[in-house]
């Protein structure tokens, strides 16, 4: 079914508001784009929207109770809530080094969850 909706392109800081006509994942028409990257953005957003996700996991024995983590690559947007629920279950042990894999192949998407920083062990 053909539908028309407004989307904001976030490829560059300009943030063009696009009027997009599409049938499911097939883009029929894009208006209001300042450059040709607008259309690519729309296609990506319709077919497989992804976002970088940053959150925290619990850490035991560290200088803080939480360790900040992030996805090694943009993660499928529809599964973000599922990923966050998964991260809530995790508790790792200090020390941790920046870039260490906290969760490999998250939800089978081939994307790792990495430590955003070092987390030294709490002393004293």
């Amino acid at each position: 079914m053909e539908t028309t909706e407004k989307m904001i392109c976030i490829t560059c800081p300009k943030g063009c508001t696009l009027e997009v006509t599409h049938d499911g994942q097939t883009v029929l028409k894009v208006e209001g784009s300042g450059c040709k990257r607008g259309k690519d953005y729309v296609e990506r957003e319709l077919k497989d929207p992804r976002r970088m996700v940053a959150s925290t996991v619990r850490v035991r024995g560290g200088t803080h109770p939480l360790l900040p983590v992030y996805t090694s690559a943009p993660f499928p947007k529809p599964r973000i809530q599922e990923l966050l629920a998964e991260l809530r279950k995790i508790e790792i042990k200090a020390p941790v080094k920046m870039g260490e894999v906290v969760l490999a192949d998250a939800l089978g998407e081939g994307i790792d969850i990495l430590a955003s920083r070092d987390m030294p062990r709490m002393t004293g």
């Binding site: 970088m52 940053a54 959150s55 925290t56 900040p68 992030y70 920046m98 870039g99 955003s116 920083r117």
Partner: peptide, 20 residues
């Protein structure tokens, strides 16, 4: 802890703690 740091200097999209 969010991403978006270092795009100009490292040409990478890092979370704040990693940039630091």
């Amino acid at each position: 802890i969010h991403n978006g740091f270092g795009v100009e200097i490292f040409k990478e999209d890092l979370p704040g703690p990693s940039y630091a």
